[in-house]
Amino acid sequence: MMEDVVVENLWKIYPGGIQAVKGISFTVHHGEIFSLLGPNGAGKTTTISILTTLIKPTKGKALVGGFDVEKEAKRVREIIGLVPQDIVVDDDLTGWDNLMVQAALYHIPKSVARKRAEDLLEFMDLKEFANKKAENYSGGMRRRLELAAALLHRPKILFLDEPTLGLDVQVRTAVWDYINRIRKEEDMTLIMTTHYMEEADKLSDRVAIIDYGEIKALGSPKELKDSLGGDIIEVEVEALPEGSSLESLIPVNGMVKEVKLRGNVIRIKTAEGEKALPNIVISLSSKGVTVKSVNLIKPSLDEVFMEFTGKRIRESEVSKEEVFKERAIMRRRAR
């Protein structure tokens, strides 16, 4: 298998001593979608910035497409595309002009650029807006234009930094569709960062969970979820009968792996939730326990994140600059 990105013991310490990335290592295979999942400030954007030659690493090695990001920065730039976190479409230019500037920066011959731009605008459903100034575009349209611009020079490796940040749920799903289509139609490796669990889960072949500059877990979404050891069943009960222990009510066996009591809720870890659930309810009823409600939780990356970092992803913690961006997007929409 060809490795498109090789990262070995990569460090980034900013002036002032902030350790943004602390010795991470990973490889990305050719043709896969690889996600860096973590909360804001985890080091995702720093990692992407190093890989796209925007900043220099403090220590360690990073190869992109076989080229060293420090020593062969120009070669790296020729084969990568970046969809940055901020929507950086040029507002004062039309969609078409935006693409033409981009094409010229990569020295794509004019005739080729025109053909590709037409195809990409078609692909991104932006054809009818091509000659409108980008300031009239909605958030989703900007993202699509951004994607089109990043694809114009047919990069081997495409970096997407928080591709759906600031977009509402519907638009987000639409952007996922486009990303999936790009992946199907182009021979391209995609590396993205996100702090949306669902995004990482739905899109990626492999996910690296990153927190405080370190990779806490790495694997396919399925592997990561399987590592939790199966489903979780939560049973809310009226009260446990006097004198009966939890173990006697739900014995740990081949099916039940772990039982915990949290208030009135019994939390059961099990390999196959669907099969275990009826048995548990029947068994509890037969022992005289009134079951008020049951909840079957399928393992999610959210649970995985919880497992490896001991906390939920801090989605509520948003940086000042991000607030600025989100507001900027809202302002643009309002116009």
Binding site: T52, T53, L54, K74, R77, E78, I80, G81, L82, P84, Q85, D86, I87, V88, D90, Q102, L105, Y106
Partner: peptide, 12 residues
């Protein structure tokens, strides 16, 4: 607005 990064990522 981040446009500079876009320029810096390109091989110009």
């Amino acid at each position: 607005l981040g446009y500079l990064n876009k320029l810096l990522v390109s091989p110009i």
